[in-house]
Nucleic acid binder design. Structure first.
Lengths: 170, 170
DNA sequence: TATTGTTATACTCTATAACTATA
DNA sequence: TATAGTTATAGAGTATAACAATA
Protein backbone atom coordinates (compact mmCIF):
# COMPACT_ATOMS: atom_id res chain seq x y z
CA UNK A 1 0.00 0.00 0.00
CA UNK A 2 0.98 0.80 -0.04
CA UNK A 3 -0.26 2.62 -0.04
CA UNK A 4 1.86 4.46 -0.11
CA UNK A 5 5.30 3.05 0.00
CA UNK A 6 8.79 4.03 1.17
CA UNK A 7 10.02 7.18 2.81
CA UNK A 8 12.41 9.27 0.75
CA UNK A 9 13.05 7.30 -2.40
CA UNK A 10 13.40 10.33 -4.61
CA UNK A 11 16.47 8.82 -6.14
CA UNK A 12 16.47 5.17 -7.12
CA UNK A 13 17.66 4.16 -3.66
CA UNK A 14 18.31 0.47 -3.77
CA UNK A 15 21.67 -1.10 -4.24
CA UNK A 16 23.31 -1.56 -7.59
CA UNK A 17 21.98 -4.57 -9.43
CA UNK A 18 24.34 -7.51 -9.38
CA UNK A 19 25.07 -9.60 -12.41
CA UNK A 20 21.99 -11.65 -13.23
CA UNK A 21 23.54 -15.01 -13.98
CA UNK A 22 20.58 -17.08 -15.06
CA UNK A 23 16.96 -16.09 -15.29
CA UNK A 24 14.98 -17.26 -12.31
CA UNK A 25 11.78 -19.22 -12.43
CA UNK A 26 8.88 -17.04 -11.30
CA UNK A 27 6.53 -20.00 -10.99
CA UNK A 28 2.96 -18.82 -10.49
CA UNK A 29 3.80 -15.21 -9.63
CA UNK A 30 3.22 -13.84 -13.14
CA UNK A 31 -0.28 -15.26 -13.12
CA UNK A 32 -1.20 -13.37 -9.95
CA UNK A 33 -2.78 -9.97 -10.28
CA UNK A 34 -1.48 -8.97 -6.85
CA UNK A 35 2.06 -9.46 -8.03
CA UNK A 36 1.63 -7.07 -10.93
CA UNK A 37 -0.35 -4.52 -8.96
CA UNK A 38 2.42 -4.43 -6.41
CA UNK A 39 5.09 -3.83 -9.05
CA UNK A 40 2.98 -1.20 -10.76
CA UNK A 41 2.38 0.52 -7.44
CA UNK A 42 6.11 0.60 -6.72
CA UNK A 43 6.88 2.02 -10.17
CA UNK A 44 4.18 4.66 -9.77
CA UNK A 45 5.39 5.55 -6.31
CA UNK A 46 9.00 5.97 -7.33
CA UNK A 47 8.10 8.18 -10.23
CA UNK A 48 5.63 10.14 -8.12
CA UNK A 49 8.18 11.19 -5.52
CA UNK A 50 10.74 12.08 -8.15
CA UNK A 51 8.21 14.04 -10.22
CA UNK A 52 6.62 16.12 -7.49
CA UNK A 53 8.55 19.20 -6.48
CA UNK A 54 7.04 19.35 -3.02
CA UNK A 55 8.64 16.52 -1.02
CA UNK A 56 6.07 16.74 1.76
CA UNK A 57 3.26 15.73 -0.56
CA UNK A 58 2.32 12.10 -1.00
CA UNK A 59 -0.43 10.70 -3.18
CA UNK A 60 -2.87 10.58 -0.28
CA UNK A 61 -2.33 14.23 0.54
CA UNK A 62 -2.64 15.13 -3.10
CA UNK A 63 -6.02 13.41 -3.28
CA UNK A 64 -7.17 15.29 -0.19
CA UNK A 65 -6.21 18.57 -1.81
CA UNK A 66 -8.03 17.73 -5.03
CA UNK A 67 -11.21 16.73 -3.21
CA UNK A 68 -11.06 19.79 -0.97
CA UNK A 69 -10.76 22.05 -3.96
CA UNK A 70 -13.59 20.40 -5.89
CA UNK A 71 -15.81 20.11 -2.80
CA UNK A 72 -15.16 23.11 -0.57
CA UNK A 73 -16.09 22.36 3.02
CA UNK A 74 -15.94 18.60 2.59
CA UNK A 75 -15.67 16.92 5.97
CA UNK A 76 -13.04 14.46 7.09
CA UNK A 77 -15.30 11.45 7.20
CA UNK A 78 -16.20 11.96 3.56
CA UNK A 79 -12.55 12.18 2.65
CA UNK A 80 -11.83 9.06 4.70
CA UNK A 81 -14.57 7.17 2.98
CA UNK A 82 -13.75 8.18 -0.56
CA UNK A 83 -10.01 7.70 -0.21
CA UNK A 84 -10.27 4.60 1.95
CA UNK A 85 -8.10 6.12 4.65
CA UNK A 86 -8.89 5.59 8.31
CA UNK A 87 -10.33 8.65 10.04
CA UNK A 88 -7.51 8.66 12.57
CA UNK A 89 -4.93 8.67 9.80
CA UNK A 90 -6.89 11.40 8.06
CA UNK A 91 -6.44 13.66 11.08
CA UNK A 92 -2.67 13.49 10.75
CA UNK A 93 -2.71 14.14 7.03
CA UNK A 94 -4.95 17.17 7.44
CA UNK A 95 -2.79 18.34 10.35
CA UNK A 96 0.20 18.39 8.07
CA UNK A 97 -1.62 20.14 5.26
CA UNK A 98 -2.85 22.71 7.74
CA UNK A 99 0.66 23.16 9.15
CA UNK A 100 1.85 23.82 5.61
CA UNK A 101 -0.83 26.46 5.37
CA UNK A 102 -2.51 24.80 2.41
CA UNK A 103 -5.87 24.00 3.99
CA UNK A 104 -8.03 25.27 6.83
CA UNK A 105 -10.49 23.49 9.06
CA UNK A 106 -13.68 25.47 9.62
CA UNK A 107 -16.15 24.39 12.26
CA UNK A 108 -19.67 24.05 10.91
CA UNK A 109 -22.25 26.23 12.58
CA UNK A 110 -25.12 23.82 11.96
CA UNK A 111 -23.37 20.76 13.33
CA UNK A 112 -20.55 21.84 15.58
CA UNK A 113 -18.91 18.41 15.51
CA UNK A 114 -18.05 18.81 11.87
CA UNK A 115 -15.14 20.69 10.43
CA UNK A 116 -15.15 21.52 6.76
CA UNK A 117 -11.87 21.49 4.90
CA UNK A 118 -11.11 24.49 2.73
CA UNK A 119 -8.12 25.27 0.56
CA UNK A 120 -6.26 28.47 1.33
CA UNK A 121 -5.12 30.78 -1.46
CA UNK A 122 -1.66 29.33 -1.01
CA UNK A 123 -3.06 25.80 -1.21
CA UNK A 124 -4.92 26.59 -4.39
CA UNK A 125 -1.75 27.96 -5.93
CA UNK A 126 0.33 24.97 -4.92
CA UNK A 127 -2.30 22.50 -6.03
CA UNK A 128 -2.24 24.03 -9.46
CA UNK A 129 1.46 23.24 -9.74
CA UNK A 130 0.98 19.83 -8.22
CA UNK A 131 -1.71 18.89 -10.66
CA UNK A 132 0.52 19.85 -13.55
CA UNK A 133 3.36 17.77 -12.17
CA UNK A 134 1.16 14.79 -11.53
CA UNK A 135 -0.50 14.83 -14.91
CA UNK A 136 2.98 14.93 -16.40
CA UNK A 137 4.09 12.07 -14.16
CA UNK A 138 1.12 9.98 -15.23
CA UNK A 139 1.80 10.72 -18.84
CA UNK A 140 5.39 9.58 -18.43
CA UNK A 141 4.39 6.31 -16.77
CA UNK A 142 1.64 5.50 -19.23
CA UNK A 143 3.32 6.71 -22.38
CA UNK A 144 3.55 3.15 -23.67
CA UNK A 145 -0.23 2.91 -23.68
CA UNK A 146 -2.59 4.41 -26.17
CA UNK A 147 -5.44 6.49 -24.86
CA UNK A 148 -7.78 3.58 -25.45
CA UNK A 149 -5.53 1.14 -23.65
CA UNK A 150 -5.23 3.41 -20.63
CA UNK A 151 -9.00 3.76 -20.47
CA UNK A 152 -9.30 0.01 -20.76
CA UNK A 153 -6.76 -0.51 -17.97
CA UNK A 154 -8.60 1.86 -15.65
CA UNK A 155 -11.91 0.30 -16.49
CA UNK A 156 -10.60 -3.17 -15.67
CA UNK A 157 -9.10 -1.98 -12.40
CA UNK A 158 -12.37 -0.39 -11.37
CA UNK A 159 -14.00 -3.77 -11.66
CA UNK A 160 -11.84 -5.36 -9.02
CA UNK A 161 -12.35 -2.93 -6.18
CA UNK A 162 -15.65 -1.96 -4.58
CA UNK A 163 -16.64 1.65 -5.07
CA UNK A 164 -19.51 3.98 -5.57
CA UNK A 165 -20.67 4.32 -9.13
CA UNK A 166 -18.79 7.16 -10.78
CA UNK A 167 -20.47 10.00 -12.46
CA UNK A 168 -19.54 10.16 -16.09
CA UNK A 169 -16.59 12.44 -16.74
CA UNK A 170 -15.42 13.43 -20.12
CA UNK B 1 4.05 0.63 -1.20
CA UNK B 2 3.31 0.01 -0.39
CA UNK B 3 3.76 -2.08 -0.74
CA UNK B 4 2.22 -3.92 1.31
CA UNK B 5 -0.24 -1.98 3.34
CA UNK B 6 -1.64 -1.86 6.88
CA UNK B 7 -0.91 -4.02 9.84
CA UNK B 8 -3.69 -6.26 11.03
CA UNK B 9 -6.69 -5.43 8.94
CA UNK B 10 -8.01 -8.97 8.87
CA UNK B 11 -11.44 -7.72 9.69
CA UNK B 12 -12.75 -4.72 7.85
CA UNK B 13 -11.31 -2.44 10.48
CA UNK B 14 -12.36 1.02 9.63
CA UNK B 15 -15.27 2.79 11.14
CA UNK B 16 -18.82 2.29 10.06
CA UNK B 17 -19.66 4.24 6.95
CA UNK B 18 -21.72 7.32 7.66
CA UNK B 19 -24.65 8.35 5.57
CA UNK B 20 -23.42 9.57 2.22
CA UNK B 21 -25.50 12.67 1.77
CA UNK B 22 -24.55 13.91 -1.68
CA UNK B 23 -22.06 12.45 -4.12
CA UNK B 24 -18.77 14.26 -4.09
CA UNK B 25 -16.93 15.58 -7.09
CA UNK B 26 -13.82 13.51 -7.72
CA UNK B 27 -12.40 16.03 -10.17
CA UNK B 28 -9.39 14.57 -11.99
CA UNK B 29 -8.84 11.62 -9.66
CA UNK B 30 -10.73 9.07 -11.79
CA UNK B 31 -8.49 9.89 -14.73
CA UNK B 32 -5.34 9.06 -12.78
CA UNK B 33 -3.98 5.55 -12.98
CA UNK B 34 -2.30 5.95 -9.57
CA UNK B 35 -5.67 6.54 -7.97
CA UNK B 36 -7.07 3.28 -9.28
CA UNK B 37 -3.93 1.27 -8.61
CA UNK B 38 -4.02 2.45 -5.02
CA UNK B 39 -7.65 1.40 -4.58
CA UNK B 40 -7.02 -1.93 -6.24
CA UNK B 41 -4.00 -2.50 -4.04
CA UNK B 42 -6.05 -1.79 -0.92
CA UNK B 43 -8.80 -4.16 -2.04
CA UNK B 44 -6.29 -6.88 -2.82
CA UNK B 45 -4.53 -6.36 0.49
CA UNK B 46 -7.70 -6.57 2.55
CA UNK B 47 -8.81 -9.73 0.87
CA UNK B 48 -5.32 -11.19 1.09
CA UNK B 49 -5.08 -10.93 4.85
CA UNK B 50 -8.58 -12.28 5.34
CA UNK B 51 -8.01 -15.17 2.93
CA UNK B 52 -4.69 -16.42 4.18
CA UNK B 53 -4.85 -18.67 7.21
CA UNK B 54 -1.33 -17.87 8.35
CA UNK B 55 -1.45 -14.34 9.78
CA UNK B 56 2.33 -13.99 9.77
CA UNK B 57 2.48 -14.22 5.99
CA UNK B 58 2.29 -11.12 3.81
CA UNK B 59 2.43 -10.94 0.06
CA UNK B 60 6.17 -10.21 0.10
CA UNK B 61 6.91 -13.26 2.20
CA UNK B 62 4.68 -15.36 0.02
CA UNK B 63 6.62 -14.31 -3.05
CA UNK B 64 9.89 -15.20 -1.32
CA UNK B 65 8.55 -18.65 -0.55
CA UNK B 66 7.41 -19.22 -4.11
CA UNK B 67 10.74 -18.15 -5.58
CA UNK B 68 12.69 -20.21 -3.06
CA UNK B 69 10.69 -23.27 -3.95
CA UNK B 70 11.02 -22.81 -7.68
CA UNK B 71 14.69 -21.84 -7.45
CA UNK B 72 16.28 -23.77 -4.59
CA UNK B 73 19.35 -22.01 -3.27
CA UNK B 74 18.37 -18.62 -4.71
CA UNK B 75 20.35 -15.88 -2.98
CA UNK B 76 18.98 -12.82 -1.25
CA UNK B 77 20.18 -10.34 -3.82
CA UNK B 78 18.30 -12.16 -6.53
CA UNK B 79 15.17 -12.12 -4.41
CA UNK B 80 15.66 -8.43 -3.69
CA UNK B 81 16.06 -7.64 -7.33
CA UNK B 82 13.13 -9.65 -8.60
CA UNK B 83 10.72 -8.53 -5.89
CA UNK B 84 12.00 -4.96 -5.77
CA UNK B 85 12.62 -5.13 -2.05
CA UNK B 86 15.69 -3.53 -0.51
CA UNK B 87 18.34 -6.01 0.57
CA UNK B 88 18.22 -4.74 4.15
CA UNK B 89 14.47 -5.31 4.26
CA UNK B 90 14.98 -8.71 2.71
CA UNK B 91 17.13 -9.75 5.65
CA UNK B 92 14.28 -9.15 8.06
CA UNK B 93 11.76 -11.00 5.94
CA UNK B 94 14.04 -14.03 5.62
CA UNK B 95 14.78 -13.83 9.36
CA UNK B 96 11.10 -14.18 10.06
CA UNK B 97 10.62 -17.05 7.63
CA UNK B 98 13.61 -18.78 9.17
CA UNK B 99 12.25 -18.22 12.69
CA UNK B 100 9.00 -19.85 11.56
CA UNK B 101 11.09 -22.78 10.38
CA UNK B 102 9.90 -22.48 6.80
CA UNK B 103 13.22 -21.70 5.13
CA UNK B 104 16.90 -22.24 5.79
CA UNK B 105 19.92 -20.20 4.83
CA UNK B 106 22.79 -22.33 3.57
CA UNK B 107 26.22 -20.81 3.10
CA UNK B 108 27.61 -21.44 -0.37
CA UNK B 109 30.90 -23.33 -0.46
CA UNK B 110 32.08 -21.69 -3.70
CA UNK B 111 31.38 -18.13 -2.62
CA UNK B 112 31.21 -17.97 1.12
CA UNK B 113 29.54 -14.56 1.13
CA UNK B 114 26.43 -16.03 -0.38
CA UNK B 115 23.69 -17.81 1.44
CA UNK B 116 21.22 -19.83 -0.57
CA UNK B 117 17.63 -19.93 0.59
CA UNK B 118 16.01 -23.35 0.79
CA UNK B 119 12.52 -24.36 1.84
CA UNK B 120 12.26 -26.81 4.70
CA UNK B 121 9.85 -29.74 4.54
CA UNK B 122 7.56 -27.74 6.78
CA UNK B 123 7.86 -24.74 4.49
CA UNK B 124 7.00 -26.80 1.47
CA UNK B 125 3.93 -28.13 3.20
CA UNK B 126 2.77 -24.71 4.31
CA UNK B 127 3.45 -23.17 0.92
CA UNK B 128 1.19 -25.74 -0.66
CA UNK B 129 -1.67 -24.57 1.52
CA UNK B 130 -0.76 -20.93 0.99
CA UNK B 131 -0.77 -21.28 -2.76
CA UNK B 132 -4.21 -22.81 -2.64
CA UNK B 133 -5.51 -20.00 -0.47
CA UNK B 134 -3.96 -17.34 -2.64
CA UNK B 135 -5.21 -18.77 -5.91
CA UNK B 136 -8.65 -18.83 -4.34
CA UNK B 137 -8.25 -15.26 -3.11
CA UNK B 138 -7.26 -14.11 -6.58
CA UNK B 139 -10.18 -15.92 -8.11
CA UNK B 140 -12.53 -14.19 -5.69
CA UNK B 141 -11.14 -10.74 -6.48
CA UNK B 142 -11.10 -11.22 -10.22
CA UNK B 143 -14.32 -13.16 -10.58
CA UNK B 144 -15.90 -10.25 -12.40
CA UNK B 145 -13.34 -10.57 -15.16
CA UNK B 146 -13.24 -13.16 -17.89
CA UNK B 147 -10.02 -15.05 -18.40
CA UNK B 148 -9.25 -12.89 -21.40
CA UNK B 149 -9.91 -9.70 -19.51
CA UNK B 150 -7.64 -10.74 -16.65
CA UNK B 151 -4.86 -11.56 -19.10
CA UNK B 152 -5.42 -8.21 -20.75
CA UNK B 153 -5.27 -6.42 -17.39
CA UNK B 154 -2.03 -8.12 -16.46
CA UNK B 155 -0.53 -7.43 -19.83
CA UNK B 156 -1.38 -3.73 -19.58
CA UNK B 157 0.07 -3.52 -16.07
CA UNK B 158 3.29 -5.14 -17.22
CA UNK B 159 3.72 -2.34 -19.68
CA UNK B 160 3.86 0.35 -17.04
CA UNK B 161 6.58 -1.05 -14.84
CA UNK B 162 10.12 -1.93 -15.84
CA UNK B 163 10.95 -5.60 -15.62
CA UNK B 164 12.91 -8.39 -17.17
CA UNK B 165 11.22 -10.04 -20.09
CA UNK B 166 9.13 -12.94 -18.88
CA UNK B 167 9.47 -16.39 -20.21
CA UNK B 168 6.23 -17.54 -21.74
CA UNK B 169 4.06 -19.40 -19.28
CA UNK B 170 0.94 -21.23 -20.17
C1' DT C 1 37.72 -2.37 -4.62
C1' DA C 2 33.29 -4.62 -5.13
C1' DT C 3 29.80 -7.70 -3.43
C1' DT C 4 26.81 -10.34 0.05
C1' DG C 5 24.75 -10.03 3.91
C1' DT C 6 23.96 -7.79 8.32
C1' DT C 7 22.82 -4.41 12.05
C1' DA C 8 21.05 -0.15 13.69
C1' DT C 9 18.14 3.58 13.12
C1' DA C 10 14.48 6.34 11.53
C1' DC C 11 10.41 7.63 9.01
C1' DT C 12 5.85 6.94 6.82
C1' DC C 13 1.57 4.83 6.64
C1' DT C 14 -1.85 2.68 8.91
C1' DA C 15 -4.56 0.41 12.57
C1' DT C 16 -6.51 0.20 17.20
C1' DA C 17 -8.54 1.92 21.13
C1' DA C 18 -9.92 5.29 24.21
C1' DC C 19 -11.45 9.73 24.51
C1' DT C 20 -14.05 14.60 23.91
C1' DA C 21 -17.71 17.25 22.16
C1' DT C 22 -21.56 17.39 20.09
C1' DA C 23 -25.96 15.56 18.28
C1' DT D 1 -26.77 6.19 21.80
C1' DA D 2 -24.45 7.63 17.67
C1' DT D 3 -21.34 10.60 15.11
C1' DA D 4 -17.08 13.82 14.08
C1' DG D 5 -12.96 14.43 15.34
C1' DT D 6 -8.86 13.72 18.23
C1' DT D 7 -4.98 11.65 20.81
C1' DA D 8 -1.84 8.05 21.95
C1' DT D 9 0.28 3.98 20.83
C1' DA D 10 1.94 0.30 18.14
C1' DG D 11 3.09 -2.43 14.07
C1' DA D 12 4.64 -3.28 9.29
C1' DG D 13 7.30 -1.76 5.42
C1' DT D 14 10.96 0.49 3.80
C1' DA D 15 15.10 3.51 3.38
C1' DT D 16 19.68 4.90 4.84
C1' DA D 17 24.15 4.27 6.42
C1' DA D 18 27.77 1.87 8.38
C1' DC D 19 29.80 -2.44 8.92
C1' DA D 20 32.01 -7.50 8.51
C1' DA D 21 33.31 -11.12 5.74
C1' DT D 22 34.62 -12.53 1.47
C1' DA D 23 35.86 -12.12 -3.34
Amino acid sequence: MPDDLPAAASRRARTKTPKRSEPIDLDILPSLLGYHIRHAQIALWRDFVSSVGEPAIRSGMFSILVLSEANPGIVQTQLSQELDIDKASMVQLIDRLEALGWVQRRRSSEDRRRQGIHLTAEGRKRLKTLKREIVEHERKLTKQLSRTELAELISLLERIYPHEPRRART
